[in-house]
Design a protein around this nucleic acid. Sequence first.
DNA 1: TTACATGCAAATACTTTGCATATAA
DNA 2: TTATATGCAAAGTATTTGCATGTAA
Lengths: 141, 141
Amino acid sequence: MQKELLHTSALKATKKRELILQIMKEESRPMTADEIYEKTSGLLTMNVSTVYRALHLMTEKGILEKTVRQDKKAYYTLRRHDHCHHLVCTECHAVIPIDSCPLEELAEALEKETGFQITGHSLQFDGICPVCAKKASEQKG
Amino acid sequence: MQKELLHTSALKATKKRELILQIMKEESRPMTADEIYEKTSGLLTMNVSTVYRALHLMTEKGILEKTVRQDKKAYYTLRRHDHCHHLVCTECHAVIPIDSCPLEELAEALEKETGFQITGHSLQFDGICPVCAKKASEQKG
DNA sequence: TTACATGCAAATACTTTGCATATAA
DNA sequence: TTATATGCAAAGTATTTGCATGTAA
């Protein structure tokens, strides 16, 4: 339950925060502050800054994971133990989760090699999904 | 020479563009528009928007490579055939290039699996470099 | 000469922040 | 009751753009 999740992190369990978490759980994909904000409309009235503040705090507490993509927007996901990366269509922005992550291994090697204490990594593949590729070829011919 | 590089890409070889390329060659590390702009001061007077426009055009022509990092800034590097990724200190922003890239292989597998036509990927490791780690522990006691 | 480059200021887009008010604990 | 959450408007930051002028080819 969302309420417990918030309390455990010493955050007050407000209806707005619970709704944000519920939306993120239902969508279960990386979302921007604005996407979440849009989804709240009709359910609860809240200001965008409330969404931003909630996301920031929850990220700080480790409830969420934040990643900045090449479009310069911050994407948030519920933090899971089995973290994964994404394949993103540059046309329609479709997102496909990638289960395999070959980077933990590389990270360890790098720590030994450089003396860095590695705290995280970001990875994203960009490409064109089959649907958009088809559309593009139809337009040409 | 920078002049040829620009001409080959059908860009006029202005002194400002040549200077930008020269700076990037000398620094040979990923730089933001603003960092480049700072480096030009004293050498040539130019507006920040000139830097932004030059970087944008040169990226479009394939002379540069652009990557958006977690700090939401765009970093540019001279494009090389042997592309590589970076390990970045979250404290002092030191950058260590990583030679190995395990992703081409994964990208191919993903193309087969998802039907995406993969056009690129971005990868960055974040961590704390030995120098900053030492400073931090000294401050504690 | 002429298409392209540049300066300048204003506009954008996403995000953060100060302050007064409201609410969970 | 009291620390924390929220709304609102204003500010911040990186970047883009329109238009008049300047310059490489």
